[in-house]
Design a protein around this nucleic acid. Structure first.
Lengths: 240, 240
DNA sequence: CGCCCTATTGATCTGAGTCAAATTATGTGG
DNA sequence: CCACATAATTTGACTCAGATCAATAGGGCG
């Protein structure tokens, strides 16, 4: 439960965080050095998207700040594919049928590897295999889970489970452990959940009327009754 | 009259097919032999699902016959995650939040590898890395594309793009190149697209009334006007 | 204070789900 | 080959969740 509070994360900090979470303990120092040399640091301001070479695949480690992976179709419509949080790894594929971009929900620090270079290193250091395989498998799992979730859930289920999963993730909760600060507008939440602003707003009102949440300010939400809230979230209550 | 099933794909046939498509040309014979020893052959009758050990991950190569990957939530509801066709590889994860099963749309032949054994072999033969990495990446791409498609598409868009993508895939098209034989019931199509039978049926009727398709029999569909059909499919018109 | 942006609330509209019934294949046994 | 049983498909009538359109109410800040 280490949290990365600092806003200015250096490459080395981020890399250490990455190494600690994803590299096996017995990794030789030279390999770690080689990897570090491949990493580049990107700081993405709130609501901005990454500006990476879209003709190449990248592996991205989210060192700090929540991000979302958005797919843009040829018509320029964006659709959220997945969320990533501090500590997650993801593959950012090159431009294809869709153009994928990583968007920072709040200011984010990313450790970026060019996939081709990584593969080359991997050939020389097979130890990396499992690391990378685990990353893509995890990403696949997340995306599949997301797909299922996206399938046929009601607006209430979406909003309730969104709030609960935010609580899981955000350690920015207040002392009472129930109040969280969403640094997102209703519009952003709506996009995340595939709903409209109005529907999200109505769901907030409904949950407030039911006494399950309170909204002291525009950005703060207090989960007054997490248990009944989880009931509203339906089958997809976060595993806690 | 049952469509004649090209039965009895042998393990060796299937493996050769796999090797041809996924193994690099320069793979040493001994490695190929080792891999072959890990493969097991599964023939899944139409509409049946795989019965694999759900406590283990598997890598599956679809040697013959279209299949779908279905996720069952704790309540037993199934949701389609992806389609695979002849030549595709996919990861079938062990039981977790969801239980994943591979369902044969028509009779299918699968080449199954136990993931742990494969990883062990991979450690000794790093050449496999790229093969497996490419597989998971492809699976991730498919799933992400599916997620986007699932996002906010109307029933008409879904059905139109479904028909067009079936044309891409099915080589069972008649001589005129426009008539295809769907070996799926409306129910199965509906599940695939996250719709109900009735809605699918209505969409077929609508497209028929518009003169874009014709339905000579229950299972046959002729794409009379693929261009206008693609227009109905919206932004997600299959590339080709 | 007035401006602009976000959020809420209300009034309709609409697409797809649901329920129910009619219609058409696909068998099956005689 | 026919009659009947059964399953698959189509169609119609109705409902409802969520989108859309439109108006109102707060902030934050110059």
């Amino acid at each position: 439960m280490k949290r990365f509070e600092r806003t200015a994360v250096t490459l080395n900090d981020a890399f250490d965080c990455f190494a600690g979470q994803h590299l096996p303990a017995g990794a030789p120092a030279t390999l770690v050095q080689q990897l570090r040399a491949l990493a580049s640091m990107h700081t993405v301001p709130r609501r901005q998207m990454t500006t990476l070479d879209v003709t190449r695949d990248h592996l991205v480690f989210v060192a700090h700040g929540p991000t979302k992976l958005v797919a843009f179709d040829p018509a320029g419509e964006g659709q959220i594919v997945a969320f990533q949080f501090c500590g997650d790894c993801l593959t950012l594929p090159r431009e294809g049928l869709y153009t994928y971009r990583l968007v920072a929900i709040r200011a984010a620090s990313l450790l970026v590897f060019e996939a081709e270079a990584l593969r080359a290193l991997e050939r020389r250091a097979p130890m990396l295999n499992e690391v990378l395989a685990r990353c893509s498998l995890a990403a696949l799992q997340r995306t599949r889970a997301n797909l299922v979730a996206m399938g046929r859930r009601s607006a209430t289920e979406r909003v309730a489970s969104f709030l609960l999963s935010m609580r899981e993730i955000e350690q920015v909760a207040q002392a009472d452990g129930r109040t969280l600060t969403l640094e997102m507008t209703r519009k952003e939440i709506a996009d995340c959940l595939g709903l409209t602003v109005e529907t999200v707003s109505r769901q907030f009102s409904k949950l407030r009327d039911l006494g399950l949440i309170a909204t002291p300010s525009r950005t703060q939400v207090r989960l007054s009754d997490p248990v009944r809230l989880a009931a509203q979230a339906g089958a997809f209550a976060p595993a806690a």
